[in-house]
Design a protein around this nucleic acid. Sequence first.
DNA 1: GTATAAAGTTTTAGATATAAAATATATTGA
DNA 2: TCAATATATTTTATATCTAAAACTTTATAC
Lengths: 155, 155
Amino acid sequence: MIPQSEPPTEPMSKTRLRLWLKLLKTSGRIEAELRRRLRDEYATTLPRFDVMAALSRFPNGLKMSELSDLLRVSNGNVTGIVDRLTNNGHALRVAVPGDRRAQLARLTPAGQVAFTKLAQAHEAWLDELLQGLDADDAAILHTLLGKTERETNAQ
Amino acid sequence: MIPQSEPPTEPMSKTRLRLWLKLLKTSGRIEAELRRRLRDEYATTLPRFDVMAALSRFPNGLKMSELSDLLRVSNGNVTGIVDRLTNNGHALRVAVPGDRRAQLARLTPAGQVAFTKLAQAHEAWLDELLQGLDADDAAILHTLLGKTERETNAQ
DNA sequence: GTATAAAGTTTTAGATATAAAATATATTGA
DNA sequence: TCAATATATTTTATATCTAAAACTTTATAC
């Protein structure tokens, strides 16, 4: 066996740090582009789009706390976003029969129409922004991202 | 050739949309955990860490606009973060000889010491949070993430 | 049955984020 | 030189975001 003087390999922690920076840069770049297009083309924001997407999946409405849990944002935050959607005419608050503490947030008909357009644009934008990845790439990437779970106790 | 009735395949745009949601969820989960640890263990924030990291790479200081470009955040934003770092004793502003419009932000000695500790903790946290990925996984992931570039005109 | 605890939401305080206006300084061109 | 323009930063207005306090309503314990 011939002794080889190998090039010193990078410690694994440095490799993971570089990977994280790449991951952060990638998601940040795409997210910034989505925010820009939502603002410029539809005069809305990503948090509002996220809330509308959640409400769209539950036509009967969601309690503020349910929205907060689903989107993993704070309770107080949801209040402000739903406020703005309400001022917009895209959402409204409905009383919960039998519990005067709670309220349901729901999309208005105008909100549903608006969200349908937003969702189509959103999907088309991502199809464009992720052109560089084919079906195989996407499958591998999805799997590898899944391998990072279970290291944080948050689900 | 035998005709096969294949299962209907998902349109590529849906695949890319699901991938994006996974990417967003992954980076959000890790970022939230980093923010939590920076706050709980070091009483600081991710934006301040990012600014300190940039200043640490340039011991002679960076102009506010250079910081803004490097970190890709708005000019007004950098002002506030450097303000807080300055109040903290971790940064200071230095006049630029020959241009009274500009100022350099620099780490103080205390800021350099603090950042060294933060950076070590940060690298160790990521090593932990990305345990699920070995060196091969990381290399593949890094490459696939790279394939998403060049679709947005932002560098 | 009332005191206490729990649940649901909003409000508050502080930090971050952008875009756009305002301020101050430099540079340029006639 | 001096007006016009460009550069560098801060300020302002608005929107997010969290944690924690405040408030209302409901449920529970005794």
